[in-house]
Measured scan of single mutants.
Amino acid sequence: MPSETPQAEVGPTGCPHRSGPHSAKGSLEKGSPEDKEAKEPLWIRPDAPSRCTWQLGRPASESPHHHTAPAKSPKILPDILKKIGDTPMVRINKIGKKFGLKCELLAKCEFFNAGGSVKDRISLRMIEDAERDGTLKPGDTIIEPTSGNTGIGLALAAAVRGYRCIIVMPEKMSSEKVDVLRALGAEIVRTPTNARFDSPESHVGVAWRLKNEIPNSHILDQYRNASNPLAHYDTTADEILQQCDGKLDMLVASVGTGGTITGIARKLKEKCPGCRIIGVDPEGSILAEPEELNQTEQTTYEVEGIGYDFIPTVLDRTVVDKWFKSNDEEAFTFARMLIAQEGLLCGGSAGSTVAVAVKAAQELQEGQRCVVILPDSVRNYMTKFLSDRWMLQKGFLKEEDLTEKKPWWWHLRVQELGLSAPLTVLPTITCGHTIEILREKGFDQAPVVDEAGVILGMVTLGNMLSSLLAGKVQPSDQVGKVIYKQFKQIRLTDTLGRLSHILEMDHFALVV
């Protein structure tokens, strides 16, 4: 994948999101292997301009796509893939009243899908469409860049269908997702969380590099694949309309690839034109409109599966009536509230959605109805927002919020430890010299600072030695090549209790 991002070429006709291997024109390309080798690009942008032909009021008969309808489940399912879809609609009884809503608040519980998330729908649909058009064949390999849930859905379907599955996901995604993927037989590649989507090191860039190296491999490409919004247009939206008897006044959905909100909203605009569509985008993402909503100094966020630093091709923002931004604290607070007060075992993005819903639905009156999409299960986040310690460490809970008995030293300040200034190293000294210094002084790690004293990161003896043994660096290389740029900081005025929580999850903390 090139470091400079080429513009994806656009073909003359058809839909841009065809499933299957992508040609340089962004659509299915038939021909000899030699032709494909000559024409197939190194990668295709996940934010390529959409060429979708959908228009409100256009006859369904003019759609270029294969459409399906929700099917009634048999008493005995032939395999677990038949437990994807037909998820329950559940009334939220307490939270709406707590925040003064007059309307009825309903939750579409997508964590009841077989793999635990709304992404099971698009995973199965992308595979079925690729099999139907002859792209996927027995023994082929599926590769997908994902925040985890699409990966789980694909790995689940691949396990049943017999495909090899490789999932490329950023490091910030939970260990629970990784464990589930491994249990399903998927191979996992992790990428830096802070890598831009168009960087060769991003999950998108690495996935395309693997595709170019592995024979008979395919990126189904949830960011561009029409099967993504079509899955929701054909099934999720129809289920909502049936469950609500066609009567709903507002739908609120958090947005990642945009397939969920695009597919549902398009069908609702056709069948229930008075329904307002509300999009939820986390602070630090750029999906919301108008652009002024996205202006923030924050560039990272903890909530998973929603928000991006690019506009995915499948996201149709014209069908969203209003956007709201959400933050991590309210997302996790509301997710825990949904679990504790409503018994809905949902993930953090569901918290984002409901946090926005109780604001947006203030305009609705008694007798009206708001539906929220709860995308995934708490299963993926047992060591994250479900953990009091994690919430404390991230600053989303305060010590006084917890009532468990603490040891005698818990409320003492870090400054009472009488710490001395640490050994520091410059980023320009060599790895070999740094190892000598650390061994001589008896230290395992040291902060790396520039000549102005600005902290650049941390270097550890173990990481340097393993990097040297693996051949990633040489003793003569500058130590700046092996620094940890993500590390926890703590102030002298913070409590030892807070430091204790940090050290339970990290090997060190830097006192500043």
Rank of each mutant, 00 (worst) to 15 (best):
G115I: 07
L28Y: 11
R51P: 06
H17G: 13
P21W: 12
P170D: 05
A195L: 03
H232K: 00
T262V: 09
I95C: 08
A237C: 12
I127Q: 06
P59M: 10
Q243M: 09
K269W: 03
N194Y: 11
E213A: 14
D245E: 12
E34G: 13
T191L: 02
E171A: 08
G134D: 07
L230K: 07
E239C: 00
P192F: 05
P273E: 09
N149P: 05
C103R: 03
E34Y: 10
R121D: 02
R18Y: 14
I219Y: 05
S254W: 02
K83Q: 11
G246C: 01
K271L: 11
G96D: 13
S117H: 04
T257L: 05
E9Y: 05
E104N: 09
V206D: 02
G185A: 09
A265I: 02
L124F: 10
S175L: 07
R91T: 11
S19T: 05
D35Y: 13
K36H: 12
N212K: 12
E201C: 09
K36Q: 13
M126E: 06
I219S: 08
G258W: 00
D234H: 05
H67Y: 03
K25H: 11
A24E: 12
P145Y: 00
G14V: 11
C244A: 03
H17N: 05
L136G: 05
E239I: 00
R164I: 04
T235F: 15
A60L: 11
K247P: 07
V10K: 12
A130W: 00
S61Y: 13
M126F: 05
V10W: 11
L81D: 07
P46C: 04
T13K: 09
P138Q: 06
Q243R: 11
I261D: 01
P170S: 07
I219C: 03
G57L: 04
Q243L: 12
W208D: 11
R58G: 06
P49N: 08
A48T: 14
K94F: 05
A24N: 10
R51G: 09
P2W: 09
S227R: 07
K72L: 13
G57N: 13
K39H: 05
A130D: 08
H65G: 01
L28A: 10
N149Q: 02
I188W: 00
P64F: 12
Q243P: 03
D120F: 07
L248N: 02
R125P: 06
T68Y: 06
F111N: 04
K211C: 04
I143H: 00
R121M: 00
A207S: 08
K25W: 03
L106Q: 10
A226R: 10
I95H: 02
P12K: 10
L28H: 09
T257A: 06
R161N: 10
D198K: 07
S63D: 15
K177T: 01
L124G: 07
W43R: 11
N228C: 00
A186K: 00
E9D: 15
P200K: 08
R266W: 02
L77C: 08
A226L: 07
L268S: 03
D129F: 03
T260N: 06
I214L: 07
S3G: 11
G31H: 10
E270V: 13
C52L: 00
K36R: 14
S174C: 00
G246V: 01
C15G: 09
G20L: 14
G153Y: 01
D234N: 11
V206K: 05
D47T: 06
C15E: 10
V90F: 00
V206W: 02
I152M: 07
L56N: 12
G148N: 06
E4N: 12
K172G: 02
K177M: 01
R45V: 06
C109K: 03
P138T: 15
G263Q: 00
P273C: 15
D86Q: 10
S174W: 02
G153I: 01
I122Y: 01
D120M: 07
P170L: 03
G139A: 03
P138L: 15
I76E: 07
M126V: 05
K30P: 10
P12V: 07
P41A: 12
L156S: 02
G26I: 05
E176I: 00
